[in-house]
Lab assay of single mutants.
Amino acid sequence: DTFTFTLDGIEVRLHGASEELIKTIEELLKRDIRWEELEKWIREWEK
């Protein structure tokens, strides 16, 4: 599955994202998160 969203005018596609990761990103997007914050968060998630 591919999860697609737009952040700061950039279309982002995550391939093979888990349901948990998708739900977490959706929550972060509701908080009007900035790209830099999401990028940092995703790097931490990957560890």
Rank of each mutant, 00 (worst) to 15 (best):
W35D: 01
E46C: 08
K23M: 13
L38D: 00
V12M: 07
K47N: 15
K30E: 09
F5E: 00
K47G: 14
W45G: 02
S18H: 06
T4P: 02
T2W: 12
L28T: 02
E39M: 13
E46Y: 15
L28K: 07
L7H: 09
E27F: 08
E20I: 12
E19T: 14
E39H: 09
L14E: 00
R31Y: 11
W35I: 10
R43W: 10
L7Q: 02
W41E: 07
L28I: 06
H15T: 13
A17C: 08
G9N: 06
L38P: 00
L28R: 04
K30F: 06
I25C: 02
T6M: 12
D8A: 04
D8P: 01
G9E: 06
I22Y: 03
W41G: 02
S18A: 07
E19K: 14
K40S: 11
I10W: 05
H15F: 10
E39T: 05
G16E: 06
K23P: 01
L29D: 01
E37H: 07
F5P: 01
W35Y: 12
D8H: 06
K47P: 15
L21D: 14
I33S: 04
D32L: 05
G9K: 02
E27R: 08
I10Q: 11
R31N: 13
I42E: 00
G16A: 08
F3C: 03
F3Y: 15
L38Y: 11
K40P: 12
H15C: 13
E37I: 07
L38R: 00
I33Q: 04
E19H: 11
R34E: 07
E37A: 09
E27A: 10
E46H: 11
L38E: 00
E20R: 05
I25H: 00
E39G: 05
W35T: 03
F5R: 00
W45I: 07
E37W: 08
I25S: 00
K47M: 15
T2G: 08
R34P: 06
E27S: 09
E27M: 12
E20V: 09
L29T: 02
T4V: 13
E39K: 09
E39W: 10
K30T: 11
K30G: 06
H15S: 12
I22T: 05
E27L: 09
E19R: 11
D1N: 13
L14R: 00
K47W: 12
W35V: 04
K30N: 12
W45R: 01
I22F: 03
A17V: 14
K47E: 15
E36D: 14
S18K: 05
S18I: 04
R13E: 15
E19F: 13
K40R: 13
V12L: 06
E20W: 09
K23W: 08
E20P: 06
L28E: 02
A17D: 02
L29G: 01
T24I: 13
E27P: 01
D8I: 02
K23R: 14
E26Y: 09
D32T: 06
H15N: 13
D1I: 14
E39I: 11
R31C: 04
F3N: 01
D1F: 14
E19Y: 11
R34D: 08
R43D: 10
L38S: 00
E39P: 05
G16D: 10
K40E: 12
F5N: 01
L14Q: 00
E39R: 06
I10R: 10
E44S: 03
L14G: 00
W35G: 03
G16M: 08
K40I: 12
K47R: 08
R34I: 09
K47S: 15
I33R: 03
E26F: 08
E11I: 10
E44M: 02
F3A: 02
F5S: 01
A17S: 05
L14W: 05
H15K: 09
R31W: 10
E26Q: 13
S18T: 15
E36C: 07
R31G: 15
E19L: 14
T4S: 12
T24L: 15
E46P: 06
W41P: 00
L38W: 15
R31L: 10
R31M: 11
W41K: 09
K23C: 04
W35P: 04
E37N: 06
I22N: 01
I10E: 08
W41C: 03
E11V: 11
L38N: 00
E20G: 09
L14T: 01
D1C: 13
S18L: 03
I42C: 03
G9M: 04
I33P: 09
K23G: 09
W45L: 06
E26N: 13
G9C: 03
H15R: 05
T2C: 07
R13I: 15
E20Y: 11
G16W: 07
E27I: 12
V12F: 13
V12I: 12
I10A: 05
F5V: 06
L28D: 01
W45H: 06
E37Y: 07
E27D: 12
T6R: 04
W35M: 08
R13L: 08
E39N: 07
R43T: 11
R13F: 10
G16H: 11
E46D: 14
E26C: 04
K40M: 12
W41D: 02
R13K: 15
L38V: 05
R13G: 05
I10K: 10
R43E: 12
A17R: 02
W45F: 09
I42V: 07
L21F: 14
K47F: 13
L7F: 13
S18Q: 06
E46S: 04
E46R: 02
A17I: 13
H15W: 09
T24Y: 09
K47A: 15
I33F: 05
D32Q: 10
K23E: 10
S18D: 11
R43Y: 08
R31P: 04
F5L: 04
L7S: 03
D1S: 14
T4N: 07
F5G: 01
T6N: 09
H15Y: 13
I22L: 07
K47D: 14
T6G: 02
E19A: 13
E26S: 11
G9F: 05
L29M: 06
L28A: 11
E37R: 04
L21A: 09
D8T: 02
K40D: 07
E20A: 14
R31E: 06
E39A: 06
R34Q: 08
K47Q: 15
F3K: 02
I10C: 13
E44R: 01
E11T: 13
W35A: 04
F3W: 12
H15G: 06
I10Y: 12
E20F: 09
E27C: 11
E36R: 09
L29H: 01
S18V: 04
I33A: 07
I42H: 01
V12D: 01
D32C: 11
K23L: 10
D32P: 09
K30Q: 11
A17Y: 07
L14Y: 03
I22P: 00
R34T: 14
D32F: 07
E36A: 13
